[in-house]
Nucleic acid binder design. Structure first.
Lengths: 203, 203
DNA sequence: AATAAAAACCCCCTTTTGGGGGTAAGGGAG
DNA sequence: CTCCCTTACCCCCAAAAGGGGGTTTTTATT
């Protein structure tokens, strides 16, 4: 019997999941939270083997929360369960210590398979995400931390000079990064750059 | 007994919803589809009183699909059920003929209340959305169709000259729209304009 | 020790944007 | 029959972005 906890603010989904897991016979739901803060209070008590974690939580972002959990409870396997099927999100989630990744439109049996796999220490990606990560695509773009920082500042509307002042670099350097970002993402100008950054969840 | 059909690509959610509705005794699920095209094939057979419709469908956008349904089957009450809680989405959904709007983190009993209300011809908004629509906020921005079109073209990276050529207006006119959009949304420059447009689902 | 990235820097010149000011026709709602 | 909003148009000038070309240093990875 695998002990599972669920963190997701969609109450309809958590209720559905709960009965799905209980009925399956392979897992037991030891706790449900609808936000990260609610989860923090109880996670130590619940002692789940597997934590089903949504990325779009109301209080903090699931990526950071995953990192936090793995630092405090490295033995808990985190299995992401979300609507996002973007390369950048999956990659960051795995980098932050997640053991698996499910998208919410996955079949019910994939959820069960995923829970079993991560409980046994494997890395599990649902079919659609597995394809996404394997297929080399011009959409699977990975940026360095500095580049992501620049992208964030650009999307907040700072000019090259303002960015330079804020992070203590030369405006010419910022220009260089900006040009490189346009090139890497294949964006024509800042408008498209910001749009792509948001769509691909790079910021 | 209210006949309900569900269109949502999140299989876990549709399963949870189905048992929720069946158990409630007030509604019967007469059909489930995981995409708009799947729904189109069967809607005529199902003849639901209420259609629970997600906005983020895989094939077409739920806003347009709602319009399409209301044109073909004006008697079916469309109740939006989605993750989006942005003013612009709710407003467009209602403009396109929806009878109600639920967000997915609403309580189960709100879902039942919503189904009953729209079945009796009322307009139903779940608590959170009701607050959102009533509170006058600088975030509740409504643009004219022309302005939305311009915003779309800007976010696609077209320059003033290119937009002017495409929609047969003077580049000076486009400049005027651009300035006005910056003013209306309170954006410092194009980068922020695009970011806000996407965040507030104006495009 | 070699190599490849990432991070930082620089200049010239053109295009595009943004801030400031405006004007005016047409349509719908009170 | 006004009033307001939308749509459409115009000019001047400064600021910012983008296209082209580069260099050097640090930091991982093999």
């Amino acid at each position: 019997m695998i002990n599972v906890a669920i963190v997701d603010d969609h109450k309809i989904l958590t209720e559905g999941l709960q009965s799905l897991l209980e009925d399956s016979g392979i897992a037991k739901v030891v706790g449900v939270a609808h936000s990260a803060s609610e989860c923090r209070l109880s996670l130590g008590f619940w002692k789940p083997d597997v934590l089903l974690l949504d990325v779009g939580l109301p209080d903090i972002n699931g990526l950071d929360f995953c990192k936090e959990i793995k630092e405090q409870f490295p033995e808990i396997k985190v299995l992401a369960l979300t609507t996002h099927n973007e390369y950048a999100i999956v990659r960051q989630m795995l980098d932050n210590g997640a053991s698996g990744y499910l998208i919410k439109n996955a079949m019910a049996d994939e959820v069960l398979a995923g829970i079993q796999a991560v409980a046994y220490g494997e890395i599990f990606l649902c079919h659609e995400v597995d394809l996404l990560m394997k297929r080399p695509s011009e959409k699977n773009i990975w940026l360095s931390p500095r580049e992501r920082e620049l992208l964030r500042l650009i999307s907040e509307g700072l000019t090259n000079t303002e960015i330079a002042e804020q992070i203590f670099l030369s405006p010419e350097t910022i220009r260089g990064y900006r040009k490189n970002l346009l090139l890497k993402l294949g964006a024509k100008n800042t408008a498209v750059l910001v749009k792509m950054a948001i769509e691909q969840k790079l910021i």
